[in-house]
Design a binder for these strands. Structure first.
Length: 279
DNA sequence: CACGAGACCTGTTCGC
DNA sequence: TGCGAACAGGTCTCGT
């Protein structure tokens, strides 16, 4: 489910609280539950039993698509992958059938990691960089400039779409927002990164930041049955709009597969530069 | 270095 | 109506 805007929205809700659920900042952990063992990537369940109880939440933020929970001693990292979500409710509430990991607090509140497809993972680390250190830049950070993007693109020969989705190249874009940004920038998903002009790279930079900011403003996109978050899905330009008219030129949106991912684009607005795609 | 295929999982939707 | 195939917001590993 979640890409940068959805993860950002979830992190803010945990940090600030929402109607019916308080902020988790300052809460002290009593115990945890792990109904699906593989959800815990690191350390072992036994080690976690030594480290988590008594620990206290200091801060919550997002890095790439990770939820980063700073504890008094150590870091709890959570990656929602395809279908994960984080919910706060009373300990005695009815169990979520898809709960894979739960943390209980002295306040009698419980944080539940719900994840239908079981792809999500949790890490408890003394050094968060062990996992976060592999990530590329934050697309919304000040230091990520349009010239920095142009320079990074100019040395890569990969197709632009899979490159943008590579989390070590840039952290946070997934299938939805990549398609959206490429359409806004009028760039074909198959174009080689090093073939983009400086003007196109700059336009792409603007587009990436615009779709991510808009996604956050709308509190993310709710697609299918999984995420009941924001309403950005009502404003999508191409994603899952195959056959519907392009909002710019009216041409039917097409779907193709790029890097094994469904890819949506406008054949007129995002033409493949002639004879450039190959060699 | 770049790419494709296969895993990991469950649920919904599509096509016949 | 029923049933298998295709598809879904992500990432890792392996082989070419």
């Amino acid at each position: 489910m979640p890409e940068l805007p959805e993860v950002e929205t979830i992190a803010r809700r945990l940090r600030d609280g929402v109607e019916g659920a308080p902020s988790l900042i300052g809460m002290r952990i009593t115990t945890f539950h792990l109904p699906w063992g593989r959800t815990l990537a690191e350390p072992s369940e036994d080690d976690l039993t030594q480290q988590l109880p008594g620990n206290e939440i200091i801060a919550i933020r997002r890095r790439g698509k990770y939820i980063v929970i700073q504890l008094k001693a150590g870091w709890l990292l959570i990656h929602l992958r395809m279908s994960g979500d984080l919910l706060v409710g009373p300990i005695d509430a009815q169990d979520d059938p898809y709960a894979r990991f739960m943390v209980d607090f002295t306040s009698k509140w419980r944080l539940t990691f719900s994840d239908v497809r079981k792809f999500g993972r949790v890490w408890f680390l003394q050094d968060a960089q062990k996992v976060l250190g592999k990530l590329g830049p934050e697309p919304l950070a000040d230091r990520f400039t349009k010239d920095a993007l142009y320079r990074k693109l100019s040395t890569r020969k990969r197709k632009i779409k899979p490159l943008l989705m590579d989390q070590s190249f840039l952290a946070g874009l997934g299938n939805i927002y990549t398609d959206e940004a490429l359409h806004l920038a009028k760039i074909n998903p198959l174009v080689r990164a090093d073939r983009l002009s400086e003007a196109h790279a700059h336009q792409l930079w603007r587009s990436i930041r615009k779709v991510l900011r808009e996604g956050i403003r709308r509190q993310g996109a709710s697609i299918d049955w999984v995420y009941r978050g924001g309403d950005y899905q009502k404003h999508l330009r191409v994603y899952q709009r195959t056959g519907e008219p392009c909002i710019v030129c009216g041409t039917p949106i097409r779907r193709m597969v790029v890097g094994q991912r469904g890819t949506h684009y406008c054949p007129l607005c995002q033409p493949l530069p002639q004879a450039t795609s190959g060699e």
